[in-house]
Nucleic acid binder design. Sequence first.
DNA 1: GCCAACGTTGGC
DNA 2: GCCAACGTTGGC
Length: 163
Amino acid sequence: MKYWLLKTEPESFSIQDLAAAKDQTTCWDGVRNYQARNFMRDEMRVGDRVLFYHSNADPPAIVGTAQVVREAYADPTAWNKADHHFDPKSSPDNPIWQMVDIQLDEIFPRPLGLDELRKVPTLKNMELLRRGSRLSVQPVKKSEFDAVLKLARPRPGVAHKRL
DNA sequence: GCCAACGTTGGC
DNA sequence: GCCAACGTTGGC
């Protein structure tokens, strides 16, 4: 099983939006970066765990977790002229861009801001915390994922409430 | 709103 | 295939 971090601007799609979605599931459309697409297309598998990150937020923070429930398939927003992420190079015959489906696991009791994450030794080399890191789909190490979960729990050993 | 850090584009 | 110009991302 692999671990990932997905970025989203909460103004366009937040973890609260995911919680309100049908089956608490959404397609992750709009990715228009080849490296990010390749991670989704080539490596993401059903059951992989996802850290949900709010960028351009106050504070920028990891706000919860999700899991992959459908593997990569064509992103139709790329061939919709009216869509903000329209790409003329993409078509139903040659989709280029792909997306996965994710389902909410939990919203953390509190957001884990960048400043707090930077204090955790285990997360020192996390891609998210690297200077100039802009990739919207990032691999996360198991040790990093576990450290984030530990930070999110109110107290060790207390089971979290599942939504 | 600034700007550093990237990715992409297009002339050559 | 180089690389300058340009656009975007995203923390601050």
